[in-house]
């Protein structure tokens, strides 16, 4: 019985492997968008900055299907079971835990006032804000801002590079993806010693973070799927504009290092 099955399964495996290889080759061949020759269309193509569009669209479609059966129901259940104030608390805790990474990025962006804001936010919210559940610091004059590795690289003058739609991460670019890896490096939790349950905590936080983030965009993503003629392109445009706005806000933050109360 085993002897008969063995060669057959091996054969099946090679066939599957061959099919997979063929699919990969097809993906590679179809992976690049063809450059148009018409000047107006070419200008549009360059503005789109998405030369890997066919491949990106495949990953987008797969991600959407996987999401519909996994993450989306979990996020929906989370929204159904947990009331909004508690969800805001969870999101605040996660954002507080990411403060060290935000701080390092503020520093590398050469934005001392932003770094000061982040430092004070971490201090206030970790204590008065009960381990980060309440964002007290925002009311005390230290508003939240974004900082990540992608923005730091932008501050250093790196262009974003072409649009990428990555599995698990979603809309991205070479710059943002590199920045993402930097952020993992900036996070103190990356360096926790093994064997204290901290690794588990780290993964749990990561999981909760994914669900919390997905829950926060449930309505918006549904709305895009419903109203956009080409949701992929709409998400690409939203991602780009949002990223650029964050970078612009960071660049235009020219607040002096000496706080107001000191100079008065």
């Amino acid at each position: 019985m085993q002897q008969i099955q063995h060669p057959r399964s091996q054969k099946a495996r090679t066939a599957a492997g061959r099919a997979g290889l063929a699919a990969l080759l097809a993906l590679g061949a179809a992976g690049c968008a063809t450059k148009p020759t018409d000047p107006a269309a070419l200008a549009e193509y360059n503005q789109r900055n998405d030369p890997l569009e066919p491949t990106n669209r495949v990953i987008y479609r797969v991600s959407k299907t996987v999401d519909a059966y996994t993450l989306k129901p979990v996020a929906q259940a989370y929204v159904w079971a947990v009331p909004l104030p508690a969800r805001t608390g969870v999101s605040n805790v996660l954002s507080n835990i990411s403060s060290p990474a935000v701080f390092f990025n503020d520093v590398f962006e050469a934005k001392p006032r932003r770094a000061g804001d982040t430092f004070m936010r971490f201090l206030i919210n970790s204590t008065v804000g009960v381990a980060g559940v309440f964002d007290v610091a925002a009311d005390w004059g230290y508003p939240k801002h974004s900082a990540n590795g992608g923005m730091t690289l932008a501050a250093w003058g790196l262009p974003s590079g072409p649009y990428l739609f990555l599995p698990l991460i979603g809309p991205s670019s070479p710059r943002a993806a590199t920045g993402f890896a930097m952020d993992v490096g900036f996070s103190p939790l990356t360096y926790v010693p093994r064997g204290y349950g901290l690794i588990t905590l780290n993964w749990a936080l990561y999981g909760v973070g994914i669900v919390s983030t997905r829950a926060s965009v449930l309505n918006d993503l549904d709305q895009i799927q419903k109203t956009a003629l080409d949701p992929y392109a709409t998400i690409r445009s939203l991602y780009r504009q949002h990223t650029n706005a964050e970078i612009e806000a960071m660049r235009n933050d020219h607040r002096a290092t000496v706080p107001d109360w000191y100079s008065h």
């Binding site: 956009a228 392109a233 690409r236 445009s237 939203l238």
Partner: peptide, 16 residues
């Protein structure tokens, strides 16, 4: 929040 509604709509139509 830095996202232009008309620009987003325009890129949707352009891609379609």
């Amino acid at each position: 929040e830095g996202v232009s509604l008309s620009l987003t709509q325009r890129s949707d139509y352009a891609s379609f």
